[in-house]
Nucleic acid binder design. Sequence first.
DNA 1: CGCCACATTGAAGGCAGTCAAAGGTGGTGG
DNA 2: CCACCACCTTTGACTGCCTTCAATGTGGCG
Lengths: 228, 228
Amino acid sequence: MPNVTDVLKKTSLFLNFADAELEEIEKNGKTKSYSKGSIIFSQGQPAIAAYVVIEGKVKVYKLGSDGRQYILHIFGPGEIFAESAVFAGKTYPAFGEAITDTTLFYLFKDNFLWLVEHNSSIALKMLSSQATRLREFAAKIEDLSLKEVSARLAGFLLEEAQKKGKHTPKGLELKLDMNKTQLAAFIGTISETLSRTLFRFKNQGLIEEKNNYLIVKKISNLKDIAQS
Amino acid sequence: MPNVTDVLKKTSLFLNFADAELEEIEKNGKTKSYSKGSIIFSQGQPAIAAYVVIEGKVKVYKLGSDGRQYILHIFGPGEIFAESAVFAGKTYPAFGEAITDTTLFYLFKDNFLWLVEHNSSIALKMLSSQATRLREFAAKIEDLSLKEVSARLAGFLLEEAQKKGKHTPKGLELKLDMNKTQLAAFIGTISETLSRTLFRFKNQGLIEEKNNYLIVKKISNLKDIAQS
DNA sequence: CGCCACATTGAAGGCAGTCAAAGGTGGTGG
DNA sequence: CCACCACCTTTGACTGCCTTCAATGTGGCG
């Protein structure tokens, strides 16, 4: 397991913090591990803490009455989540689940609020990161409301390729950090439809798939599809 | 036109502010009027200010490539909007348009950021209100992804009825503060589909419509529909 | 090898968007 | 006061994307 302090140091919120401050924060929180598939919090539970991912991956999702999920976000090491539930001061508005074996650091509500209140640098960073998330959500709403699945998938592929694609002779290579059922839930559809849409993209030569790797080949065509 | 100071006093952000502080804020901003249909800002423009509605109504919306709109929010007197664009520090992520004749107060970026930085009470209020908006957006995403139009409409009616419905012998009476085309865009559909769905609700005796007023009659049935 | 979760493929059906046209309503000016 | 016009709302017929249901394929692991 990675060192907790090391990871906290790298979370954007605590960048440039003195060691003593971090030590204080760490002393007031706790560390807990979850095995793959464990529920971290459920929608409707009182929000008792925000979390920093030390190791592993966490999905935050909404559940439909028929059991279908919509994945709002997947968080990895160094990222903080569920802060806004703490600020809104009520209950968690979604579910949190470990999708790999995961270790989390707890920032308990009262301590965290105190920290924000007495540290305007943190407050501003929080505001900025919340604003960014708000922007992401607005984009998601736009996509869901105005675009069809192929456009959403193309948009996702472009974003991922840009964020962490590796250049190869054939195109931008990228590895998904979730399985396809989860990807389907992330772009607001189901695995069958995703499968068919990917097939069409492959047929058109836009992408290629090779043992768990996707190769994005025709960026500009994908951009056209993502537009409309 | 209502008095600007009076309205600012009532915006949640500035509650309990001393007169001198408000005066300072007002001195640093400006007031501007828009006629119905005017664009206040466009998606992609640099965010220069946040706004407080003094009078009128403003819709904030996303535009699809085919011209269809999705309305993210409608703001009325005393509400602040576009703050998060200022915090994210980039461009406006959506369009803002006056849907009635409207007067706005401008909180210019630098002044506003200074204010937040030097006033932890404002920072916390902002965080809380952003968290609430985030929660609203998450609910919208859930609805769009997991529910069909009738469920979204039922949910909207219930929320509105609860928020500002007046009790009458026939049921909860409420007046929409937008036209039906806008309502359609708000719940993620188009006016034709909204019209048909409302017709079905009327047929089932769930609601009644009378010269611009809606009467919500069977709350529990609507709740069932909103669920699934 | 057999189990299980995940992925793919096929067929069928429905919800909702598109296109088109006919009401309805409010505002303006003659 | 009424005629006209622009805009919104409603209704009808049609199309298509996506979900649903069902069956088969695949890969990892005990």
